[in-house]
Every structure is written in structure tokens, then in C-alpha cells.
């Protein structure tokens, strides 16, 4: 019989050594909400599980001069409870909060969601929009990688087998900045996104967008960072003309497939709808008009 070992190292070095030393497949465990399901389904048969949650920094949130550093394995429920982070990055917090049930929130993490590399992952479009940087640790020390360079395809990442993400850095926010994330699902909860959209903006005093990052989920093999959407927003207020162009740009960027969760045609249209709705929330928040949850 195959045997599976478990280790819960208490330092980055120990974890990296374990990962590097494994003869067969080694898997990093943070929340486990994808890993355990996939193991049970027989998607892969690891010989070693390295639980990173006991490594200092993997769980927790800290603020440094307006920037936030989120431990890679911090559960959704902990992130959601952080008032400062929620005020600065409501869209990202909401996106993580949308993953699964309350039960899943007790376990799921940003790193797990990103490294599972599903194009439909809820927190990932928000991370892209936020210009988050992943702090990757490995045998050669630490490197900082923009999050959009981590997933390379469905279920695949750019991380080496002996690397893992220690934490995420979110940049300090200029005034009049905010973000939003919306996904479309058939029910109100518990579904995988049919389409997701993350938008982060900074406005000037007149409500004109001065900076934007836009992303779409579940419309391509990986989450997309869509420069064309950002280009439409920058230099404009969110008027009807801008919204129509944003909708068109989102639809143009979407290259979805048809599957059990939606047809390509439907997903494309919804990408446009969500782009408009997400932008409206992000602009309202950035201009101080709205706060609070969207669902």
C-alpha cells in the first residue's frame, strides 16, 4: 500500500527541506479545502503533506505604513474579521469571503486559492486587481512575485516543487482608492463562479479615475488581468459611455469555454454585466459613497 506522511514544520527552512527531500509528490497544506477533496477524488497521490500553518508568518495580518501583509495560510474567517484590511481592500476581503461556506471560511486561504490555480477561484481576480505580490520562499531564499505570475494554467503554477508562498503584500492605498469583486453563480452561495470580476481604482477629487486594475475569472484557462478594461476606466468618470465601453472590453477579453457551469456565450455576456456592476461598486467606494457588503 502507498503510504502518506505528514509533517508540520515550524520554520521555513524545515519546510523547504521537507519539500526538497521528498522522493515522490509532496503537497503543501494550508486550509486543505481543495487539497483534501482532490486527494479523495484521486486527482493525485502525494507521499508527503507539509502543513505550513505552524510556520511563523503563515497565519496572521499586519499593517506596515498603509501596506498590508497577509499570511499565506490565513483563513478567510480571520481575514474577514480584520477591520483595517476590510476598510482598505473591501473587494479582496469580499472575494475571499465568497469562497465556499462558513465552514470552508474557517480553513480556506489566499495561497490555497491561488495555488489551486483554478481560473474560477474567487479571491484570485481580486488579488490581481489589488496588484498583490506573493512572497515566495524556497531553497534559494525569498523572492517576490506578482500574483498574476503564479498560476500558469488550470491546476499549474510557476512555483518550483520546493517553493511555497509565505505571505502576500498589498500596497499602501492612495486617497480615494478602493476595490470590488463580484462573481456570478446560479445560487446565492456554495457555487463555483461562472464568471468573476475584480476591479481596483483610484479616483481624483472630481471622480475621474487615475489608476485602475481589472481582472476576470472563469473566462480563460487562468484568471485574466485585463489592461483594456483598465485603459477604458483611466481618465474617465464612470458614466454611461464608459460603462458601455467597459462592458464591451470585458466581453472582448473573455475567451471562455462551455461547461456544466455555463455556456461560452453566456459567460461572455456576464463578463460584461459584472464588469459594469463591479466598477460601479469600486467607484462608489473610492468616492466614499458606499461601504459594506454586496451580498
Amino acid at each position: 500500500m502507498s503510504s502518506l506522511s505528514y509533517a508540520a514544520p515550524t520554520s521555513v527552512d524545515a519546510a523547504v527541506k521537507l519539500l526538497a527531500g521528498a522522493s515522490g509528490l509532496a503537497k503543501v497544506l494550508s486550509g486543505g479545502t481543495d487539497l483534501l477533496v482532490q486527494m479523495r477524488a484521486g486527482r493525485f497521490k502525494p507521499e508527503l503533506i507539509v502543513d505550513t500553518k505552524k510556520i511563523p508568518g503563515v497565519i496572521g495580518i499586519r499593517e506596515e505604513n498603509g501596506a498590508f501583509i497577509i499570511g499565506a495560510g490565513t483563513p478567510g474567517a480571520v481575514v474577514e474579521a480584520h477591520a483595517g484590511l476590510t476598510a482598505a481592500w473591501p473587494g479582496l476581503v469580499e472575494a475571499l469571503d465568497l469562497i465556499g461556506s462558513t465552514q470552508v471560511q474557517g480553513r480556506c486561504s489566499l495561497a490555497g486559492n491561488l495555488c489551486n490555480a483554478s481560473p474560477a477561484a474567487d479571491s484570485v481576480p481580486a488579488l490581481y486587481a489589488a496588484a498583490a505580490v506573493a512572497v515566495v520562499v524556497g531553497p534559494n531564499g525569498t523572492r517576490e512575485v506578482p500574483v498574476e505570475q503564479i498560476p500558469t494554467g488550470p491546476g499549474r503554477t510557476s512555483l518550483a516543487r520546493d517553493e511555497f508562498i509565505l505571505e502576500f503584500k498589498l500596497p499602501a492605498r492612495p486617497a480615494r482608492s478602493s476595490d470590488a469583486y463580484l462573481r456570478f453563480i446560479p445560487r446565492t452561495e456554495m457555487d463555483i463562479a461562472v464568471v468573476g470580476c475584480g476591479i481596483s481604482v483610484t479616483l481624483d477629487a472630481n471622480g475621474v479615475c487615475t489608476a485602475a486594475r481589472c481582472s476576470l475569472g472563469a473566462v480563460a484557462p487562468t484568471v485574466l488581468l485585463v489592461q483594456a478594461m483598465a485603459d477604458i476606466l483611466v481618465g474617465n468618470k464612470l458614466d454611461a459611455d464608459t460603462l458601455a465601453k467597459l462592458d464591451a472590453a470585458a466581453q472582448a477579453a473573455a475567451k471562455p469555454i462551455s461547461d456544466k457551469r455555463g455556456t461560452a456565450e453566456y459567460r461572455t455576456k456576464i463578463a460584461g454585466v459584472l464588469a459594469r456592476r463591479t466598477a460601479a461598486i469600486a467607484f462608489d467606494r473610492a468616492s466614499g459613497k458606499a461601504t459594506g457588503k454586496t451580498h
Binding site: 486543505g32 503533506i49 461556506s101 462558513t102 465552514q103 470552508v104 474557517g106
Partner: peptide, 9 residues
């Protein structure tokens, strides 16, 4: 913390 025990080792 509320969790699904099927998703915890």
C-alpha cells in the same frame, strides 16, 4: 471555529 471535519486531516 466552524469547519467541515471532512476537510480537516
Amino acid at each position: 471555529t466552524l469547519v467541515c471535519s471532512c476537510l480537516v486531516l
